[in-house]
Amino acid sequence: MRYLSFSLPLLILNFFPSASYAFEKNEAFLQDTILFVSPYKEDNELCFKCHAEKKYEYMNETSGKQVKAAMHPGDILSRDKFYASNHKGFSCTDCHSSQFQSFPHPEELKKEPHFNCLDCHGGDAASAVFKFEEIDREFRKSVHFRLEEQGFNCWECHDPHSYRLSFRNSKDMKETVLYDNSICLGCHADYDRFKQFSDRGKIKLSKAHKWLPHQSIHFESVRCIECHTKVNENILVPHYVMPEEAAVRDCRKCHTGNADTMTSLLTIKPTDKGNRKFDNTVIINGLNIIGANRNKYLDNIILIFFAGIMTIIGVHILFRVIRK
């Protein structure tokens, strides 16, 4: 009894690791964001002064007039998001022409060619783990590549002014899911942006996913790409977005004890704290998936118990027949 009173609370607490994980993670993230001071802060501020505002104002030295205008929505940036992004250590003029430092900006700069991801990350040893070349090959197979002529490129999903790696750095899966899904919803739930690239009519996502039980829980817990991309084990995040009709509709792809059939959620490496004899490590990262979080011992106990009961009943029936 003493052993039970000691071990039972420990056993129960064993199921609640996520709160402390989330706290540690948020703490680390906040510290990182708060402590980071860009060496180009002052230079960048010259840009943010206008580009972080809905309206801008400057003195046109040629005409001698004060210019007031509304910033184009596509050119509005967020300081906070930039300094929390992967590119936070860059100066604006690392990627953009230094001629942008003059006002008004020279007209020809509007045609300034933009870098794409491969321009910097292709062949880059520091980014080798992400395999950008393989990502590019996968992207070229995806439905999104068909929109390239309409101007669709990496930036539509991975805005270089705000994109941050969340998946590998996060232990709070729900936050990661929210962040990653917001990238998809940026177009697919915003028809004004969506129609810039597609002639398709407005799609109501809740209606398109009507077949999916517990829709809101899925949307909060699963990334869109888990069902809408083809898994490529060579890269960390699949980029081959499949046509709508090829999306995963078989619940058993995820709700199964067989980890091999699960999609890219399982490419996350389990943590040391994660070994609880469950079939799939995904639950340790903050998700609970019915049918996937099987405990082998529990399954075996249930099976043995069930077989025992049926045997007892069988023997009882036999005696009833014999002693009739």
Partner: peptide, 9 residues
């Protein structure tokens, strides 16, 4: 947190 779901499951 998720622990509750795993426990209740």
């Amino acid at each position: 947190g998720t622990g509750l779901f795993i426990f209740t499951d």
